[in-house]
Computed example of a mutant assay.
Amino acid sequence: MSIERIGLTHRWCDAAIFNGIVFLAGHIAEKTEGRSLTEQTEEVLALLEETLESAGSAKDLILSVQIFLTDISKIAEMNAVYDKWVAPGHAPTRATVGAQLASPGHAIEITAVAAKRSAA
């Protein structure tokens, strides 16, 4: 059994791949100063897509998504961005919760599990 890790640091990795399944770490916006939930959501989803690509996956292969919002009352604002991003016909299972995030200024954190693209 082999586990592949992408973006490995001492404390975490951006993704771990085992048995054709890609487990993504929680992704947060790198730029938060003065940025709205909409802007942070757009950035986080773009970062998720980059990590999926580097892991040999894609957003249409996402199986499950967990979304953490510091202000759950803004779920409609986040959904407006998410609904445009999710691959049509490939919506994953999803949970969205209100949460206090570890880093001040971050309005959203998203983690996911996806299938790895099959080798052709």
Rank of each mutant, 00 (worst) to 15 (best):
T32K: 03
F23S: 12
L48T: 06
M1Y: 03
A95Y: 12
G89N: 10
A102H: 15
P88A: 11
F23G: 07
I62A: 01
L61P: 07
R11W: 14
A112M: 04
G7E: 08
A95G: 14
I72S: 09
V97K: 14
G56D: 01
L37W: 00
G89M: 07
I67R: 03
D71A: 08
A115W: 15
S73H: 05
E42T: 14
V97N: 13
H106P: 01
T70N: 01
K31G: 09
L24D: 02
V81R: 06
L52P: 04
S54T: 12
I3S: 09
K31P: 07
L69R: 07
E109D: 09
T70Q: 04
A80G: 11
P104W: 05
T111A: 11
A76Q: 14
A58H: 11
L24F: 12
N79E: 01
E4T: 13
E43V: 11
L8R: 15
A115G: 13
W85C: 01
A80I: 07
L69G: 04
G34L: 08
A55D: 03
C13N: 10
E49T: 12
Q100Y: 15
A115Y: 15
P88W: 13
G98K: 01
S2H: 14
I62F: 07
S36E: 15
G20M: 09
L101D: 06
S118L: 11
R5G: 03
T93A: 15
I72E: 05
E39M: 08
G34I: 04
L69E: 03
I62C: 02
T93F: 14
S57E: 00
F23H: 15
R5P: 00
E53C: 05
H90R: 15
T9C: 10
R117Q: 04
G20K: 14
E4I: 15
S118F: 13
L37K: 04
I3R: 09
I67W: 02
K116N: 00
F18N: 14
S57Q: 03
K116P: 00
L37I: 02
D83V: 06
R35N: 06
S64M: 06
L63Y: 09
I28S: 08
R94F: 05
A58P: 04
V44A: 01
M78C: 06
I108G: 05
Q100R: 15
I21Q: 06
G105N: 02
T70E: 02
T41S: 11
N79L: 00
M1L: 04
F68T: 09
E30F: 13
E49F: 08
R11E: 10
S73I: 05
I110H: 05
W12G: 13
